[in-house]
Design a protein around this nucleic acid. Structure first.
Lengths: 142, 142
DNA sequence: GTAATTGCAAATACTTTGCCACGTA
DNA sequence: TACGTGGCAAAGTATTTGCAATTAC
């Protein structure tokens, strides 16, 4: 990533977070990574392992997610989700970030072209994808 | 879902699974649900709660996932993933189901149109999406 | 000085396994 | 009969919290 540390720290400050060494190192680690990371990976990463406790990293991530500065990926409940795989059928989902409701999307999935392209350019085999939309549902807005 | 139970059971049989009451009820429950479900939801669902133990549901799901009949959603490690949220920047990922490596995708994301449409038709607010491609990477194929 | 932040340890939550009994083929 | 499957209970792993001490502002 080519983004700079300071503007992000400024956003944190604007949200009322204090500028601590742990915060700086955490943001820097995420900036240097070009992919999502787990709590364990972060806590044991070079910059953080001797800097602070895993619980601190956890709480930082929690605050940052609250403020919209990081995002926790996945279907949000702590548990794993399972779905039946019906040949020739593909489902994408719409999930309310407030009440957690999940509903299937009817619209045709616009990703298949890209999927083929990725298969071609990267050499990955057996490609499939997961696509989820998140937002606040009408009930939760009211 | 409008799909029928028997063909799926037949696929299970073809994969060497035995036709048990628990298997039938589990598949039926997943068929009746139009969204992914957690282990706990399944184990406590009407059809299964007095039918079998949670461990049984777990092992069934495990076998079915092995055979490609159900899919476990998400980034596959048991842990939660976190990513920095950079305004104006969106990332999709390509993940190897064998070695677990994650890399960002450069191609422009083809989902924004659909996202707007969903926002319009469903009344959800603050929409965003997550898109991941899964497959076997070239290294793991070799 | 005050409130946010941290470390450490303990508590939860969800997942996974061992072992022996049981049911399907 | 043979081997996949099931129940129950225990172990494993990741997340989350309590509380007193510390630090940023």
């Amino acid at each position: 990533m080519s983004t700079d540390l300071n503007p992000i720290i400024e956003r944190c400050r604007a949200e009322g977070l204090r500028r601590t060494k742990a915060l700086e190192e955490l943001i820097t680690t995420l900036l240097e990574s070009d992919r999502p990371m787990t709590l364990a990976e972060l806590a044991e990463s070079e910059r953080l392992t001797n800097q602070c406790d895993k619980a601190t990293v956890f709480r930082l991530l929690q605050r940052l997610a609250d403020k919209g500065i990081v995002r926790r990926l996945g279907l949000h409940e702590r548990a794993a989700y399972f779905a039946l795989l019906v040949p020739g059928q593909h489902r994408d989902y719409l999930i309310c970030t407030s009440c957690g409701s999940i509903e299937p999307i009817n619209a045709p999935c616009p990703v298949h072209e890209l999927e083929k392209e990725i298969q071609f350019t990267t050499g990955y085999k057996n490609l499939y994808h997961e696509l989820e939309f998140f937002g606040t549902c009408p009930k939760c807005i009211a």
